[in-house]
């Protein structure tokens, strides 16, 4: 069997979009030159997506591409009001990406409504999994509270023998006497914040310290726990 010659992979890259608001060749070139002069290192040979907002003729479009190339920019794709320019785009070896989903922030007014809705939807679905859980009653001995997918905020004391867990951070505004386990699904960036630490156990992403260790550090003080080089550190909050 012969060796594989290539692999097809998906990738995303950040590129510059040249949003053409108005095309008057002379004026355009002058402004383009000024812009590039402001950061020549950044713009030289950068690949470019042309966003066409107003209908333009094939000649105008060819001139636009030529001007870009003249100023060391490399147009690679075109989107927006492509319409009659499709053949020209093809001839110039560019891609027409007017059909692909727009993800940039500059949107025309007509599209605004729909985009706003979609943003809202995505933030709502993010909330469903990442919304913090707030508990304002004491967590008693033998009780267990788990905040799935987000932070746990407790505005009451946590008793000895109680266990509080979160996929994210844990905040306890009250005396923390029980066990607190943050980042239980392995988030090493998670932290535990306590107004007064008297905990039996503090744990982040599987690493933990017991009461004896905490007692020698910031017992009965406001404190936070976090991971530093895979070691759980408990330090007083100033």
């Amino acid at each position: 069997m012969s060796q594989q010659c290539f692999r097809m992979k998906g990738t995303t890259l950040t590129s510059i979009v040249l949003d053409v608001l108005k095309f008057e060749p002379d004026e355009f070139e002058q402004q383009l030159a000024t812009k590039i002069a402001s950061a020549p290192q950044f713009f030289t040979r950068s690949s470019l997506i042309l966003q066409i907002n107003a209908a333009m003729s094939a000649t105008e479009f060819e001139l636009l591409v030529a001007l870009c190339k003249k100023h060391q920019l490399q147009p690679m794709a075109v989107k927006g009001k492509v319409g009659a320019l499709k053949a020209t785009i093809n001839d110039l070896g560019l891609s027409d990406i007017s059909q692909s989903k727009s993800t940039d922030s500059q949107i025309s007014p007509s599209e605004e409504g729909s985009t706003v809705t979609s943003t809202k939807e995505s933030s709502e679905s993010a909330e469903a999994s990442g919304k913090p859980k707030i508990i304002d009653r004491p967590v008693r001995s033998g009780q267990q509270v788990y905040a799935q997918g987000g932070d746990l905020i407790i505005v009451a004391p946590v008793s000895e023998g109680a266990e509080i867990l979160a996929d994210g951070n844990i905040h306890v505004y009250g005396t923390m006497r029980g066990r607190a386990l943050a980042g239980v699904k392995g988030d090493t960036q998670a932290r535990i914040f306590c107004q007064q630490v008297e905990a039996e156990l503090l744990s982040i992403a599987g690493r933990f310290v017991m009461q004896d260790t905490i007692q020698s550090q910031c017992w009965k003080q406001p404190a936070q726990a976090y991971l530093e080089d895979d070691t759980l550190v408990v330090s007083a909050l100033v």
Binding site: R137, V139, R140, Q143
Partner: peptide
Amino acid sequence: VRDSDRILGILQS
């Protein structure tokens, strides 16, 4: 005190 804490938890759940 600990047992009372436990029963308080049961009361509220």
